[in-house]
């Protein structure tokens, strides 16, 4: 009798953990979307908003974008390596990914510091958008508030991702993963790619538009 009774599972081979991660990512995406939509709404209501490159440093951030893309690439290579049971490759690519994340954070902290300390040049750029002061802070109108809220929320995700990947790295050092058991790496990879994916949107909406 058992053969006739099955549960139709449309999600096929995806493991339950992976489903849960996708679900979490969907929720996270909605959180980001809500913050971004708030930013767009506020932007439509005000004139005091910097154009692309006026206040924010686009070349530096473009480099950051590039870093994230590369770390996404190394992450996917790490998964590729473990699928072939190449533990060394896994460790190498994982550490490269973590390095990419840490550099991203470093550059973001540099950017923040630059804005918070401020200088005359920045002050002039801010003046052109209608904002006061020599430094660009979260209290600098809704522009500053939106900028800091969005990018710092993304930065927190990068930080989480770095910690998450460090745990995976530690576990792979202990030999927990093999070509038969790499589900957790795939799930961690999903999170990391999601961070990249969101950055693409944040970069476009906050920096470029």
């Amino acid at each position: 009798m058992n053969q006739t009774l099955t549960v139709k599972d449309p999600f096929g081979t995806a493991t339950t953990g992976k489903l849960a991660m996708w679900l979490f990512l969907a929720m996270d995406a909605i959180t980001f979307a809500a913050i971004l939509m708030g930013g767009i709404y506020l932007r439509l209501r005000t004139d005091m908003w910097g154009d692309a490159g006026q206040v924010l440093n686009i070349p530096l951030t473009s480099f950051n974008t590039f870093l994230l893309i590369m770390s996404s690439f190394t992450m996917v290579m790490a998964l590729d390596a473990i699928k072939k049971n190449d533990i060394k490759g896994l460790k190498l690519f994982l550490s490269l990914t973590i390095l990419g994340g840490v550099s991203f954070l470093g550059i973001q902290i540099y950017e923040y510091a630059h804005f918070i300390i401020g200088n005359a040049e920045l002050g002039q750029a801010l003046q052109a958008t209608g904002l006061k002061g020599d430094s660009f802070l979260w209290t600098s109108g809704t522009y500053g508030a939106t900028f800091y809220a969005t990018t710092s929320f993304h930065g927190l995700h990068v930080l989480t991702g770095v910690i998450y990947l460090s745990v995976i790295f530690y576990q792979s050092n202990k030999g927990m993963y093999s070509s038969a058991n790499y589900d957790r790496i795939e799930i961690a990879g999903l999170f990391w790619h999601f961070v990249d994916l969101v950055w693409i949107l944040v970069f476009t909406i906050i920096y470029l538009i």
Partner: peptide, 25 residues
């Protein structure tokens, strides 16, 4: 926005293996 969406689709479909997942997901 179009370019951003294209990039996001690249990441989701290739890096996140969405292309290889089941249709329903």
């Amino acid at each position: 926005l179009t370019f951003a969406l294209a990039k996001m689709a690249c990441v989701a479909y290739v890096f996140m293996h969405l292309y290889y997942e089941e249709k329903v997901l």
